[in-house]
């Protein structure tokens, strides 16, 4: 039996933080830490999470933790791992918690380097689809049509004009021992993927779809609901890469209502029907490729 709410620890290792109510990033870290436990080095670049977790004198991680330079989450982790190994430490995990910008944009180089070297580190990307800490700017993982403070929606542009960068497959292309996507809408799936990643003797990567009510302009109680709907509408997918192969963990016969998902979020409120059609077109092309080439 896998991990679930019943058998997971009651102990909290990310507690008392100052994140916004309903924060998906905070929930991601909380759930991951429940699996990893106290013998963990949690490395966080400057982002919402380091901002809310590491303000002297209030420390919300229950394990060891550090803020790393923005571009260097994986490099910092690699150093921790090398140092810990040389000092003879055993039974610990080195994990990084970076957002979408910290992963797909500024941190991609160091992530690539660490995976390439085969460093025994875990890397969690909590993807809330924009630079939230600085006030909702477009990142490489902002989806098509999302309005951010740097991808305004108006007569000429529908908000962001690019689809999400495919970081999961970029990571997998290194032939990483283990990579997965997850969603806060399917927390048990996430817990079990973290457990799998923890057991890997090498780099592992988990990309968590993690809504941000503040940045998305939605009610705070919808965090988990929207994360589930993103999967059910096919706008996000649950998958794994291991043993050199991709596997689609959920392959819905029918997708949920995209418009209903989008319209709960102010960042998509401006979308016209043709924009929504474009979003569906991007989705369908991705699913056609996954269904053809991946294990389902």
């Amino acid at each position: 039996m896998g991990l679930n709410a019943q058998n997971i620890t009651n102990e909290e290792l990310f507690y008392g933080h100052k994140a916004c109510g309903g924060c998906g990033a905070a929930l991601s870290i909380r759930l991951v830490m429940k699996v990893l436990g106290k013998r963990t080095f949690a490395i966080v670049p400057p982002n919402c999470m380091s901002t809310v977790a590491f303000i002297y004198p209030s420390m919300t991680f229950g394990c060891s933790g550090a803020i790393t330079p923005f571009a260097g989450t994986a490099a910092f982790e690699a150093g921790v791992e090398a140092g810990a190994k040389e000092l003879g430490l055993t039974d610990y995990t080195v994990v990084g918690f970076a957002g979408d910008g910290g992963t797909a944009d500024i941190g991609l180089q160091s992530l690539s380097g660490a995976i390439d070297r085969g460093d025994r580190i875990m890397y969690i990307c909590y993807d809330n689809e924009a630079y939230m800490n600085t006030g909702v700017q477009t990142s490489g993982l902002t989806p098509y049509g999302a309005k951010t403070t740097t991808s305004p929606a108006g007569d000429r542009l529908p908000g962001n004009t690019k689809a999400k960068k495919n970081v999961f497959e970029i990571v997998a292309a290194h032939d990483i021992p283990y990579a997965a996507t997850a969603s806060l809408g399917y927390p048990e799936d996430l817990l079990n993927k973290v457990a799998k990643a923890k057991a890997v003797n090498g780099p592992s990567y988990i990309h968590i779809f993690a809504p941000c009510p503040t940045g998305w302009g939605c009610a705070s109680e919808l965090t988990v609901d929207l994360a589930k709907k993103a999967v059910d509408t096919g706008l996000w997918y649950l998958a794994e890469y291991e043993n050199h192969e991709y596997t689609l963990n959920r392959n819905p016969k029918e997708f949920g209502d995209v418009k209903e998902y989008l319209k709960k979020q102010n960042r998509f409120a401006h979308l016209k029907d043709e924009d929504i059609a474009e979003i569906c077109r991007i989705r369908d092309a991705k699913w056609a490729q996954m269904r053809t080439h991946w294990n389902a």
């Binding site: 008392g16 002297y56 004198p57 209030s58 229950g62 394990c63």
Partner: peptide, 13 residues
């Protein structure tokens, strides 16, 4: 340097 014991929460939310 700027470091602190972990699980050191000051104040409530």
């Amino acid at each position: 340097g700027p470091c602190c014991p972990s699980a050191h929460i000051v104040g409530i939310n």
